[in-house]
Structure formats: structure tokens, C-alpha cells
Design a protein around this nucleic acid. Structure first.
Lengths: 245, 245
DNA sequence: CCATTTGATATTGTCTGACAATTGACAAGG
DNA sequence: CCTTGTCAATTGTCAGACAATATCAAATGG
């Protein structure tokens, strides 16, 4: 039944969140508690704890030295994210225990013009929903996000129930349609006057722009988003492999 | 002796490499051998194997399902033009048949200051080689690249023989040391006056900056690079998979 | 005959306890 | 002052066991 939608808040996820808090509350360069102590503190075995730590290590957040201890590398207040996995800012922030809040949120109902119709592969005038929002870190705007979603995916009734603002989180939580992947293009742009006003910066200041298209497992395009990030606050990482893999 | 610098990294790195081969040789969507079988096959315990797998899972390459097995996520050929594969600009341009030429090239011999020493995990004053170059497309500068390499990797004698300017291509062609992967961070920056002059743009114009660290298969950092690209000319794409934990 | 339940089986998730390898600190001795 | 040895703390790895979960086939009941 629809019962099994939300097994994502499992124990391991919880563990990662808890561990993230511990790391976030440890000053950069400082040592974490030893693994036996941490495992007892978090209520898991050392083996399980080590798996969780490995994930953080892979993102370059902590570094382990045999015979010495585990150290925190990057400082808080920098949203660090591997680009390979698609996660909402809320999810990343929660894991890293960052003080993130949502600022201005605007929802408008539009209909597809030629460009959008082509992009979504749907007829012109197809009803769409446009979600614009500002992300704050400690009451300072750091990102401006625009999502355009097909109307039948994000119904008006959905917008009232469990919609926090993150289209991605909402779709993941609902589980229908099943999401597959997203293709994103990264650019550097100069802030337009509109966006500069939202982010309280100067027009012409450099921004990171992420233009992404989100696809369902059936290959249907569900969401087109354009996101603008303040450099310095966000660090986008990607692992590049040589040759065959 | 200096011999045993990295034995702890090598063993786990080796395991990751071996595991990566197994994953690469498994068709997308197919199941990997079970953990007990794999651990026996790779000669490590199940706990250690699971830590290695967790790293791959964090990068969205595999997905584990309790009671079912571990599956390889489709790493199709879409990513070939994306950021996930580490290629030199020369290689990419050649494939796309772009009229690329190299402009100004500067090679200087420097010694590690505190920051570089920490970055390379080597003593201060370690001799390093710095390679700076400009990339032109149709006689217009579009990228400015800085590479900093350990001295014993890129010997002065190498610089005369087969060195076109691309450190990456040179190391790939030589095959020693074997390259593993690179971790790159993407940022948007405003052009400094130096770089603006190189690229013939205005100071403050937005640029894409790629800061990358290149690692050998033994886990040793070989090259630190900082690259600046003109937006519009270069399009950086990345495929993001839905985070499923 | 078909739908449902049940059980067997395979796989991942987690735990426990132990030992090995490495590091840093300190004392002993030259 | 420098070297050497010892010791404790920490991470790295291992083996084995049990729990939780999904899959599939057989048994069951209508």
C-alpha cells in the first residue's frame, strides 16, 4: 500500500544527522571524540558509526589519522555538497546542522509559452506552477531558487498540505512519480538587478547559476529549475575520474 | 624511511580501486555479488568492504537494498561530456573539433609556503613547479589555467620533451604515476585585474573557477590546479542522481 | 482455478569483541 | 642534546553472529 512511502527517515539517516551535529559543533581543526566514545554516545556500534563517518570523510568534511584521531576540516556556515547526488538545500543543511531558513516565497500559476512548451515537451498554454523562494543562512539571503513544475505534479491542494518550499523534497517524500535523475548545467553569471535585490548584493556581482532539469523514471521531464547561489557560502564539489569507470 | 609514507592509504585505496573495477565491469542495473562473496573475492573482511561500498554509495554509483542486494546505478554515456570524467581541455576540444590553441605559457619553479605545504601534505620549502597558460579559441582567450605540481613528478627534463602545456595529458600519457581521480570545486568569481588582462575582459566580470586536486592511485596528491573559464564558451554539465538513503 | 498465506532462503543491516598498526608522549640512557 | 625504548590512546581490520527485510515457491483455503 501507500504505507511504504517514507522509510527514508531510517536509523542510518538519523545517525548521519546526529553525527553531522556533532561535527558541526566541533571547531575546525579540533578532534572528535574517539570512536568507542562516539559510538556509545550515539547509541550505535563502532562498525556502524565508522560507515557513517566514511560518508563524511568522502565529502572531505573530516579526516581520520590512525593512531591520532579524527579531525574536522571544513568550517560550518559553508554549504558543501557533492554534486553527484541530488539533494535539496534543506536536506544538506539539516545534515550539516546549518541555521537555514526560508525567506520570501512566491507561488504563481502560469501557462507555458513557446520556450517552456518546448522544454517540457508539452502543448503551449499548458498550466504550470512557478515557485520562487529565497534561502537564508542566519537571516542573510544566500540563494534564490526558481522551480517550474507541471501542474498535474504539484496540485494546488498539495501546496497547502506538506509543502515547505522544496519541490524536490516534496516529490521525494511523496514518492510518486519516482524520480530518476537531474541534468544540471553550471554557469557563472552576473547578478541581474532583480536577483541582486533578492540577495541584497550589487548588480553585476558574480553568482553561481545551476540550471537543472529533473526527470522521472519514465523519462518525463517534471521540473525545470534555475538556482542562483552566493559564492563563498556554497561550495560545489564534484569527483572526476580518469579514464574508465 | 620515506618509503612508508602512505601505506595506510594504499591498502584502502587499493580496495576502492578494485571495488571500482568490479562495479565498472557490472552492467548498469545489474546486481553485484553478495557482500560475503565480494569480501572473500577481494580478500578483506565484510566490515571493511562495507566501508568502501559506503563511499561509492555516497557518490550515487551503487544502491543497496536490504534483503535484495546491491545494484549498480546506470552510469550511461550521457556523462561523457560532463564533469564526471577528467579530461584536459585539449582532449575535449579535439573531440568537439574546436579550433583551440595555446597562448601565453609560463613555467616557474617555486617552493612550498605554509598553505601549499599543508595542501600537498609535504614539508615547507618543498620544490614545486608552477605552470600557467592561456587557452585560445579562434585567437580569442577563453581560459586561464594554473597548475602546481610536485617537483619529482614533473622534472625539468620533462618540460622539454613531450610537454605541450597540459599537465594532465602529460601524466596520462606517461602513465606513471597512475592517476586515480580529481576532486574539483566549482565557484563563481569576479575576474581579478591580472586574470582580466590575460582573458581580455573587464575586471569584475564573472568567471567560472575550477579548483581541483589530482590524486594518484596511491592516494598521493600530485597536482593542484586553478582554472578560470569564460562563461558561455564552456558549458559544464553534471548528472545528479536522486539521493536515496 | 485463483487468491492468499506461510515458510524457506538469500541478502543487507547491525552488533560484539578482539587484535593489529600507527602515533605521540615521556622516560631512560648515551 | 640526541637517541632509543616503552606505554597508552586511537584508528584499521577482522571474524562471527544475529536481526531485519525482500523474494519466491509451496501450501492453503475459497
Amino acid at each position: 500500500m501507500i504505507e511504504s512511502i517514507d522509510r527514508r527517515e531510517t536509523s542510518f539517516h538519523k545517525l548521519q544527522t546526529e553525527l553531522g551535529k556533532v561535527i558541526a559543533n566541533t571547531p575546525p581543526g579540533e578532534r572528535l571524540p574517539s570512536e568507542p566514545r562516539l559510538s556509545k554516545q550515539l547509541g550505535v556500534s563502532r562498525a556502524t558509526l565508522r560507515e557513517a563517518m566514511r560518508a563524511f570523510e568522502g565529502q572531505g568534511i573530516i579526516r581520520r589519522k590512525q593512531g591520532v584521531g579524527t579531525f574536522v576540516i571544513s568550517h560550518t556556515h559553508v554549504i558543501e555538497s557533492g554534486l553527484e547526488v541530488l539533494e535539496s538545500i534543506e536536506t544538506i543543511s539539516k545534515r550539516l546542522d546549518l541555521p537555514v531558513s526560508m525567506g520570501e516565497k512566491t507561488i504563481t500559476f502560469i501557462s507555458a509559452d513557446d520556450e517552456l512548451a518546448l522544454m517540457f515537451d508539452m502543448p503551449v498554454r499548458t498550466p504550470l506552477v512557478k515557485v520562487e523562494r529565497v534561502i537564508n543562512v542566519e537571516d542573510r539571503p544566500v540563494a534564490f531558487l526558481i522551480d517550474i513544475v507541471v501542474n498535474d505534479i504539484l496540485l494546488p491542494v498539495d501546496l497547502q498540505k506538506g509543502f515547505t518550499g522544496s519541490v524536490l523534497d516534496f516529490l521525494i517524500r511523496r514518492g510518486n512519480p519516482t524520480l530518476s535523475h537531474s541534468v544540471a548545467e553550471i554557469q557563472a553569471v552576473a547578478a541581474s538587478s532583480d536577483i541582486a535585490r533578492y540577495l541584497e548584493i550589487q548588480r553585476g556581482d558574480p553568482l553561481i547559476q545551476l540550471s537543472a532539469k529533473l526527470y522521472s523514471d519514465e523519462g518525463r521531464m517534471i521540473d525545470a529549475s534555475s538556482s542562483y547561489f552566493l559564492p563563498g557560502v556554497f561550495r560545489f564539489q564534484v569527483v572526476r575520474r580518469v579514464g574508465s569507470l
